[in-house]
Design a protein around this nucleic acid. Sequence first.
RNA 1: CGGGGCGUAGCGCAGUCUGGCAGCGCACCUGCCUUGGGAGCAGGGGGUCGGAGGUUCAAAUCCUCUCGCCCCGACCA
Length: 476
Amino acid sequence: MAEKITPRNVDYSRWYTDVILQAKLADYSPVKGAMVIRPNGYAIWEMIQQNLNRMFKETGHENAYFPLLIPESFMHKEAEHVEGFSPECAVVTIGGGEKLEEPLYIRPTSETIIWSMYKKWIMSYRDLPILINQWANVLRWELRTRLFLRTSEFLWQEGHTAHATYDEAEEETKLILNIYKKFAEEFLAIPVIAGKKSDAEKFAGALHTYSIEAMMQDKKALQAGTSHNLGQNFAKAFDVKFQDKDGQLQYVWATSWGVSTRLIGALIMTHGDDNGVVIPPKVAQKQVVIVPIWRGEEEKKQVLAYADEVRTELRKEFNVILDDREQFKPGYKFAEWELQGIPLRLEIGPKDVAKDGMVLVRRDTLKKDFVAKAGILETVRQTLNLMQKEMLERARQFQQQNTHQVDDYVEFKKIIEEQGGFLNSHWCGDPDCEAKVKADTKATIRNIPFDQKAEKGKCIVCGKESEGRVIFAKAY
RNA sequence: CGGGGCGUAGCGCAGUCUGGCAGCGCACCUGCCUUGGGAGCAGGGGGUCGGAGGUUCAAAUCCUCUCGCCCCGACCA
């Protein structure tokens, strides 16, 4: 614990790893590319699950669970799908000591197994829509892995819906992306840009893909959630038809959408500082820690009794820890809880007891304030609300300050190279121009924002007519 | 897959060149003492030196083979 975190300006990616390991969010596992999510990290995931689950259910979705193993033949039914995923799949070939007749793929995503079931369940338009979500693990064989951002096995939710019309599927796709955006901003305090993926960046087998993109502190983009309109591709591959009101047989329209434990990485890289992780109050399972300070038995008794009263009061509404461990001094405890990102700390010593108050410290600003014991519940409530709001605001300002409008390709390359960030530039829609930017700068089109202004312009690469600006950035 | 580095206590490392008691820091355990920003002192536990083979009176150290991991370059949430 006495280890120091590598400062962000020395080595950002080492900082990231240091924070995760030292804050006990996760640890490396014996299996290459796989990680262990420790209680501190899993607590954040549980908060993500809890809130997204509520939002999904409020919009009519239900949870279900489909198998981990997928018959090989299923994977091959949708051409683009298998092409996109085959290289990164793990395959089970032996079971019960016998070579399997048909190899079983460990799911990289569940479209195929789910649509094989939808075929059984969908007969008529009366069976639609089907709005199912599942919380699951998936596996993709990754070469370069990083804790939370890219691991071979990861946790996510995947929604898979079936609809009678294109419009309905499209509406669903956008509804979900909107939920993701709202969740990222209101709960994780991460401002995101919602938009449409270019064809080069879309999901294998989708008609089109929408995403939310966030900016990390190193100004690189991170895709934080995706939502796909799959059209009729999977319905055709699995022959899923329904009879409409007029008695006509039609293929079903599909969507799929997901967010993963990668969101935890986004949270760390959006809000963390050189002292550790900073958890937004709304996704912190433990919101307040009380650190008592005393000298000698008499003070100890007095301080602990007082601290216990404060804890009891706060517990009416919050999850509070009273850190009365004897083997550590207050300074050590301050550092430890800051490392773990607990939003609020209350320091209570003899001086505070005498003044009928305590010192309140916000994790994001590290500012100390003396507050009265009377009304402490309301004080904490207000402070947490304010902190939540200001964290989003701060991140939004950072994103805006590092977003550049650029109309000249030389300048474009210079900014990408020297400053990074989001580049708001015109693009004609030609995949070749997109590929050239990637080859020249490693930046890709993150998405075409929904709130893109209709603005005539010239493509940053080829100079041809463009209808609007897109977001270019280097990405994780 | 191409390039680089590393495997010695839970973690981080020294020792390897030049063979000869397996060490240091942190963490851990016990006791004392401390407590408003990562305390101090004393004592203690903990090792198939990644693995196999070889050379030698003697191998963490020399030789051969092997396994694994990390970092940097082409794909992905």
